[in-house]
Design a protein around this nucleic acid. Structure first.
Length: 643
RNA sequence: GCCGACGUAGCUCAGCUGGUAGAGCAGCUGAUUCGUAAUCAGCAGGUCGGCGGUUCGAGUCCGCCCGUCGGCUCCA
């Protein structure tokens, strides 16, 4: 291969030799004019390249067309420019800031617009966008010098953009993309002409701080989605509708699980059925605490804030503690976490190495003064409980304790049917306490333990807690959304801060190692996530009502009541629905309440001492003896059957 | 907290440019006694989120507050 040419390996296996500096569009034209017309980008070695960008390397090459999955991000990126152009046409004084870096799902633009934008403006912006799309404006790529770019943006009154140019590293090549009179600093890639943006829709508008900093003025951010076809847009909107139906706030209200009142923002009321779910989860975690050697405690709810000054939380979260009993000198705080209390328990008497590891678990309700704008149903609350525990051990026991927690974690996620886990090890953040060397050792120990437990993981640099690095478990739900659940964290600060010591085998005092563990995390948040994941169709062992007994007519009510008694005697949560409604009506009522089992009792069942069993969503039924139905349910509860 | 939208019966929503509220479902009562996703009839249910203002008159217009939702933790 000469220096003056590149060798491109095409998807069909053939090799194409092109001159150095040829563009993907040149290559596409060489292959065929139809392909060139349909091209939206090139890809070399899997990396997207703008059609107008000169190629500088050999390798596997593809032309991306509207049919390729990668086309979406190119189309969205170009739609983003079209949107900004449309807004500038409508309000010429608008200054543009920046768009989105990840176009895998949506696009956005931060703009300084002279009007307060509301969704009502979308129609006119979209109409303007449509005009630009229909005009099939070519997107032109241009390489410019830094000073030239600054002069250009200054002449256009784009002060925000001028300052963005200053942010870019010296020596980096600056490129502009133009369509019509719109010009933006941009790396691309972009479609050839705006007509390739098949379908788009603006979705949201909201504020965003200039450079993400709350002390800066606020710009307006418009979000949108774009696809190559109307059909894809339709599918996208359907997915949103599906997510809306699974919204845990809706399910929680429909199934009478929990409720919120304006007088306690961010603090759920658990209704009887919701509390069954909560309590069942706690009972399950208690079972595992016993199995894995965790000892449950309860520390006080209100504390002199001295404890949080000691732990370091007071300094980190100064707004978290805002209670003062009148006439008292001490500032009182409601506890936002359990660890300081557990440290007091550890320090309550002299500790021997013989009682280590000491694993203290607690389910107490915690209160955190989360900012009002961040509250969201059960998933972001101010009052919550965690399946929390703190482990105090000798330094040489840390590995074994990590392994123990990771085994427990794997067991919980398996029992709950949560797959699609992704694990991250989060390292030292900018604000931290302790020594860097200790941090690095702890980070490695966490990574190693994760691998020993059979999880693959990724590093999450700078995302650890201020007191130590942590393992984070992320779970992907059936709709593909990712949620953080459990964590295992090293704590390099608190044992010293609370002056914790144990007497070792050598008769000397030592500082214990400390770890924080939560597997479900906040139970409120977990319940919210799990309801969305399961669409409210909880497995039998967690269902607030496990079975509904339906007598066909009044004359069967007494027998149905007896069936209920038998099931209740075995600990099954059962309800009788003897309303004078048709059977079909009551079946529907039980199905929409997502009750796992419907047991019907009529003349035949009364005569034979049986019930007809209908599993949720299954039309097929079987008739079995009451005792048999009872033991089937008992077995399914016991084994925590998923479905 | 900041930006924006929204707040009408338990739920989902209607209520035009101001003239003192309406539906479906749920609930209750009665009839029906029924074999696997909605039987019929009737009844009841609302300080229109709260407070203040404009007006002869406010669910509707204006202001403040509360709540909920969407967004804000950047990075061509």
């Amino acid at each position: 291969m000469s220096e003056r040419s590149l060798e491109l390996e095409l998807p069909d296996g053939t090799c194409l030799c092109v001159p150095f500096g040829a563009t993907p569009l040149d290559v596409a034209s060489k292959i065929g004019p139809g392909l060139a017309r349909g091209a939206v980008a090139g890809a070399i070695g899997g990396r997207l390249v703008d059609l107008r960008e000169p190629l500088s390397q050999s390798g596997p090459f593809r032309v991306i067309t509207a049919r390729d999955p990668e086309a979406g991000e190119v189309i969205r990126h170009s739609a983003e420019h079209v949107m900004a152009a449309a807004v500038k046409r409508l309000w010429p004084e608008t200054q543009i800031d920046v768009g989105r870096s990840d176009h895998s799902e949506k696009f956005q633009y931060d703009l300084d617009v002279p009007v307060r934008l509301t969704p009502e403006h979308f129609e006119s912006i979209e109409a303007e966008m449509r005009r630009i799309v229909e005009a099939q404006q070519p997107l032109e790529r241009e390489v410019v010098e830094r000073e030239e770019a600054k002069r250009l943006f200054a002449s256009l009154g784009e002060e925000l953009k001028v300052s963005r140019v200053d942010d870019i590293d010296e020596g980096a090549e600056l490129t502009l993309f133009r369509n019509g009179d719109f010009v933006d600093l941009c790396r691309g890639p972009h479609v050839q002409q705006t007509g390739q943006i098949g379908a788009f829709k603006l979705t949201e508008v909201g504020g965003s701080y200039w450079r993400g900093d709350e002390s800066n003025p606020m710009l307006q951010r418009i979000y949108g989605v774009a696809f190559s076809t109307e059909k894809e847009l339709g599918l996208h909107l359907e997915r949103l509708e599906q997510a809306r139906r699974r919204d845990h706030r809706r399910i929680g209200a429909d199934l009478d699980l929990f409720w919120f009142h304006a007088w306690a923002p961010g603090a759920p009321f658990y209704l009887p059925k919701g509390l069954v779910l909560f309590n069942t989860l706690v009972a399950y975690m208690r079972e595992l605490n016993l199995k894995y050697g965790f000892l449950e405690v309860t520390a006080p709810l209100l504390f002199d804030v001295e404890i949080f000054k000691r732990s370091g939380h007071y300094e980190m979260f100064p707004d978290m503690f805002k209670i003062r009993a009148s006439g008292e000198d001490a500032e009182i705080g409601v506890k936002p976490m359990n660890c300081p209390g557990h440290c007091l328990i550890f320090g309550s008497r002299k500790r021997s190495y013989r009682e280590l590891p000491l694993r203290l678990a607690e389910f107490s309700r915690l209160h955190r003064n989360e900012r009002s704008g961040t509250l969201l149903g059960m998933t972001r609350v101010r009052a919550m409980s965690q399946d929390d525990a703190h482990i105090y051990c000798q330094p040489d026991q840390v590995e074994a304790e990590m392994d123990r927690v990771l085994r427990m974690t794997a067991e919980v996620y398996r029992d709950l049917g949560l797959s699609g886990l992704e694990v991250r090890v989060a390292t030292r953040p900018e604000q931290y306490i302790g020594e860097i060397g200790d941090w690095e050792r702890a980070e490695k120990r966490l990574g190693d333990a994760t691998e020993r437990a059979g999880f693959s993981f990724e590093w999450a640099p700078g995302e650890g807690a201020f007191y130590g690095p942590k393992i984070e478990f992320h779970f992907r739900d059936v709709l593909g959304r990712q949620w953080q659940l459990g964590t295992l964290q090293m704590d390099m600060a608190m044992p010293e801060r609370f002056d914790l010591r144990y007497v070792g085998a050598d008769g000397q005092e030592h500082v214990p190692a400390m770890m924080h563990k939560a597997i479900l995390g906040s139970l409120e948040r977990f319940i919210g996530i799990y309801l969305e994941h399961t669409a409210g169709e909880l497995p039998l062992w967690l269902a607030p009502v496990q079975a509904q007994v339906l007598p066909i007519a009044d004359r069967h009510a007494e027998y149905a009541g007896k069936v209920c008694d038998v099931l209740r005697g075995s600990g099954i949560r059962v309800e009788l629905d003897a309303r004078s409604e048709t059977l079909g009506y009551r079946i529907r009522s039980a199905e929409t309440a997502k009750i796992p089992y419907i047991l019907v009792a009529g003349d035949r069942e009364l005569a034979d001492g049986t019930v007809t069993v209908r599993r949720r969503h299954q039309k097929a039924q079987t008739t079995v003896g009451v005792e048999e139905a009872c033991s089937t349910l008992e077995e399914e509860v016991k084994t925590r059957g998923i479905s």
